[in-house]
Design a protein around this nucleic acid. Structure first.
Lengths: 121, 121
DNA sequence: ATGAAAGTGATAATCATTCCTATTTTATTA
DNA sequence: TAATAAAATAGGAATGATTATCACTTTCAT
């Protein structure tokens, strides 16, 4: 594991948040100023392959990344875009039972308006 | 509703499939050869706003569009990318109960290997 | 017909992500 | 330790889906 990869994983595990590649770059550069965006993307892909990081594909915004990989789903605010963790709302097993097929995985995003954004109206 | 918009909606309702904007353009041009890709995108967005069409955001491929908007979810083959319809696997109400919040909607994609692709191995 | 409003086709711009490559770092072996 | 091979990096260019722009056409109410 290269020093760059360690720093990137460190950023993602430092707190429970869901940053974009750009945001990861910003934070990682505090410790490693010459880090390149391409390196961030390359290592994020590798970390996802190794199941150490999870990618959260966003529909109309840059993808986000999650350093916590125990099963959970995501609540996305339609106003500010912030992502919140919630306990698993589905299970592969339940889906396999309902669908009567083998299932490789699933991606569930629930949209809502977060308390902060609700308060603004 | 412009002639272009009608043709685009016609393509999507002609059969139960999940084409990309490009594929829609190809088919629509059989009836309207001068149709432009930008016009396809513009009208798809409008049709989605009007809830006549549903967009299926794809993670690593062009988005797909669905001319059938009654509630249902999607099964996506991880090998060939084909999208299959399945009865709703979730409901807004169930999610609201579990999460104890108002929910605007959800997007669920279940990944599997379709029978055709399984047969190839 | 006329003028305003809406829509179009063609093309350029955007921007997240990937690709390329010369260089640097790391690991290996003598 | 020096030499060498392998892997990874930084930086910048390329890609490609989608959106924006704009001159021109169509629609439609007057």
């Amino acid at each position: 594991m290269s020093r760059q990869k360690e720093v990137i994983l460190g950023v993602l595990r430092a707190q429970r948040f869901h940053p974009t590649a750009d945001e990861i770059l910003l934070r990682a550069r505090q410790r490693m100023p010459a880090l390149a965006l391409g390196t961030v993307y390359r290592n994020l892909k590798a970390l996802c392959d190794e199941k150490k990081v999870r990618r959260i594909p966003m529909e109309d915004a840059p993808d986000r990344y999650d350093g916590f990989v125990e099963p959970h789903d995501h609540l996305v605010c339609t106003v500010c875009g912030k992502v919140y963790d919630v306990p698993p709302l589905q299970s592969k097993e339940a889906l396999e039972a309902k669908l009567a097929t083998h299932v490789d995985g699933y991606e569930l995003k629930v949209y809502f308006t977060c308390p902060k954004c609700q308060a603004k109206n």
